[in-house]
């Protein structure tokens, strides 16, 4: 996906990419834990900022949004509990319980240091992109 982003951006164009990922240097056991506690698509293939650089996107800003992620997860738990009757009625008990559990796991993953959320602002370089496929004809 990042490679395709780089391809369709004009030279000098900017990408804002946000990802929930594992912090660098996690042990195999902690990476496994992150996959259990994090969202199903938690990014564990390497740091987002490094991946961007390999496809020709030059990182300009890297911002840690983990604190915001934790706040959103906690607020969601509170809001769900406050609206439990309506959510259970309209979405069903299973969905309600699943959402609560998902957000609680997210908070746990952050607190245990195995999940972070990162914002990367990167600029498409002006040269040819490494390994880019050809797009549709201009």
């Amino acid at each position: 996906m990042l490679r395709e982003c780089a391809r369709v951006l004009r030279p000098g164009g900017l990408l804002a990419a946000v990802a929930i990922e594992c912090p660098p240097g996690l042990s195999a056991a902690d990476a496994e834990l992150a996959a259990v506690l994090g969202p199903a698509d938690v990014h564990a293939d390497g740091a987002l900022v490094e991946m961007a650089a390999t496809v020709g996107l030059e990182p300009l800003h890297v911002v840690d949004w983990t604190h915001g992620l934790r706040a959103v997860a906690e607020r969601t738990i509170t809001a769900l509990e406050g609206a439990s009757e309506a959510i259970r009625l309209t979405e069903g008990d299973a969905v309600y319980e699943e959402e609560l559990s998902k957000k609680a796991r997210m908070v746990e993953g952050i607190d245990r240091g195995v999940l972070v959320r990162t914002l990367v602002i990167a600029r498409r370089g002006r040269g040819a992109l490494p390994g880019a496929r050809r797009g549709l004809a201009s």
């Binding site: 996906m1 990042l2 395709e4 982003c5 391809r7 369709v8 951006l9 004009r10 030279p11 164009g13 900017l14 990408l15 804002a16 990419a17 946000v18 990802a19 929930i20 969202p39 698509d41 990014h43 293939d45 987002l48 959320r117 880019a132 050809r134 797009g135 549709l136 004809a137 201009s138």
Partner: peptide, 22 residues
């Protein structure tokens, strides 16, 4: 599909994606 976009090269000034990586 974000992995095979139906757009020509260099046609956007900016791109965003949040919590989607594939």
């Amino acid at each position: 599909d974000g992995r095979l976009l139906p757009f020509r090269d260099a046609c956007f000034d900016a791109a965003s994606h949040a919590d989607v990586l594939c």
